[in-house]
Every structure is written in C-alpha cells, then in structure tokens.
Amino acid sequence: MITENKQEIDPSVDFLVITRPYARNFDMTEVRKNLLHALTLAHVIEKIPDEDEIEES
C-alpha cells in the first residue's frame, strides 16, 4: 500500500499511523483509501489517486 506511492513520499519524512478501533472492520480497500486520505491531509503525498487507480492496485 505504501510501496505503491513510495516515489511520492519524501524519504526524509517519518510518520506514525495510529488507527481507531473501528478500523479493524475495514477491508484492504477501505484501509488503503483512508491511509491515502490521511497522507494527503498531512501533506506527505500530493493527491489521492482516482478510485480507478485504487481498484487496479
């Protein structure tokens, strides 16, 4: 999931992902979508891939 967007992430940036208890019910598509959203909000990556790009990977 992170490896697919590795080229967009500054190698000098460290980040920690903390999930909420309800996330244990997410499937991998939801996990990826939420993680990409969080990385975008944190300005770690510039944009969230389109839905088609998410489904293809």
Rank of each mutant, 00 (worst) to 15 (best):
A38Q: 04
E46L: 09
L35P: 08
D14F: 03
L41S: 06
L41V: 06
K33P: 02
L39W: 01
L16Q: 12
L41I: 02
T40Y: 05
I54A: 15
D27Y: 11
E4D: 13
V44Q: 03
M28V: 00
L36E: 04
L35C: 13
T40S: 08
Y22T: 07
V17D: 01
F15W: 11
R24T: 09
E56R: 15
I2F: 11
V31G: 02
S12K: 04
D14E: 04
Q7R: 04
R20W: 10
K47I: 10
L35V: 15
V13S: 13
K33E: 06
R20N: 13
E51N: 00
P21L: 13
T3E: 14
A38W: 03
H37K: 14
I2Q: 03
F26K: 01
E53M: 09
V13I: 15
N34Q: 13
H43F: 14
T19S: 12
S57N: 12
N5R: 13
I54D: 11
P49I: 06
E30W: 11
V44L: 08
A38E: 02
T40G: 07
T29L: 12
E30V: 11
V44C: 03
T19M: 09
S57V: 14
E51C: 03
D10P: 08
R24V: 13
L16R: 11
P11L: 08
E46F: 08
E8F: 10
R20D: 11
M1P: 12
L39C: 04
L35F: 13
L36K: 03
I45W: 06
I48N: 07
I18V: 02
K47A: 15
D52M: 06
M28T: 03
D27L: 06
E51H: 02
E46H: 11
A23T: 07
A42P: 07
V31C: 07
E56N: 15
F26E: 02
S12Q: 03
Q7W: 05
R24C: 10
V44R: 02
T29H: 10
P21C: 09
V44N: 04
A42S: 15
E4V: 09
T19E: 07
L16W: 08
Y22V: 11
I18E: 05
L16H: 11
K33C: 05
E56T: 14
P21S: 12
H37L: 14
E4R: 12
A23P: 00
T3R: 13
K33H: 06
E53P: 04
E4K: 11
E53D: 12
R32A: 10
H43V: 11
Y22F: 09
P11H: 00
I54W: 09
N5Q: 14
S57D: 13
L16N: 12
R20E: 13
R24A: 08
E30G: 15
L35S: 12
F15Y: 15
K6G: 03
I54E: 09
D10E: 06
E46I: 09
E8R: 05
M1H: 15
I9D: 05
I9G: 00
V31Y: 02
K6M: 05
P21W: 10
A38D: 01
I45C: 05
